Simulated assay, not measured.
Amino acid sequence: MDKILGLDWQGMLIPSQSLLEVFVRGTVTYWIIYLCFRLFRRGTGQLSISDLLLITMISDAAQNAMAGTYNSISEGAVLILTLLFWDYAIDWMGYKKILFGKLARPEPILLIRNGRMLQKNMEKELIDEEELLGLLREKDVDDYKKVKSCYLESTGNISVILKDEA
């Protein structure tokens, strides 16, 4: 009965390892994952099934590196707060252009100029013609030749400027 109703307050609230170690583990793991995503991935504004799978697998693989084996709520809370801290800090530093503004917010990539698809830029971002046409349709553009310029923004969304029809 003690196992059902009893609570181990000490095990639940008192850390089993240093909270500083949990913070450092969370920080190092966050930066490794952040840099990998920023350097190697920039999606097109929406998560695909493979993106979700990748994120899930990375989170599972990183869990032990981040937390080691912890049992207390306080260690879990410190780890969660560490990840939230770095997420906010990177957004803030990107906004203030501190340290790595270009890394936090890369320059937009031109995909269409004056009705011509820029294949090299599309290839660099792993966007094929069908995907780009689909993204244009989502912006109510039925013909890419009507586009003055189309950019892949740092957010992963596209922005489209149509040619003047004078």
Rank of each mutant, 00 (worst) to 15 (best):
L20A: 13
I90D: 00
L54A: 15
A89G: 01
N121F: 00
E131A: 07
V147S: 00
K145M: 03
E125G: 06
N64W: 09
D60G: 09
E123D: 13
L53V: 14
E125P: 03
M1F: 11
L132R: 13
Q119S: 13
F37E: 04
Q46A: 13
I127Q: 10
K124N: 08
L99D: 08
L83I: 15
R116A: 10
W92P: 00
L83W: 02
Y151V: 00
L136Q: 03
K120V: 04
A104P: 02
T155Q: 07
R113A: 06
A77Q: 08
I112E: 00
D142W: 10
L35E: 05
R42P: 01
T82G: 09
Q17Y: 03
S59C: 09
F100L: 13
V28Y: 01
D60P: 03
K3S: 10
K139L: 09
L110E: 12
M66Y: 02
K96I: 02
E131T: 14
I33H: 02
L53H: 01
G45I: 08
Y151P: 00
K145A: 13
D164T: 15
P15R: 09
C36N: 00
V78Q: 07
C36D: 02
S59G: 15
I49N: 01
V160K: 12
E107L: 11
L47S: 08
L81W: 07
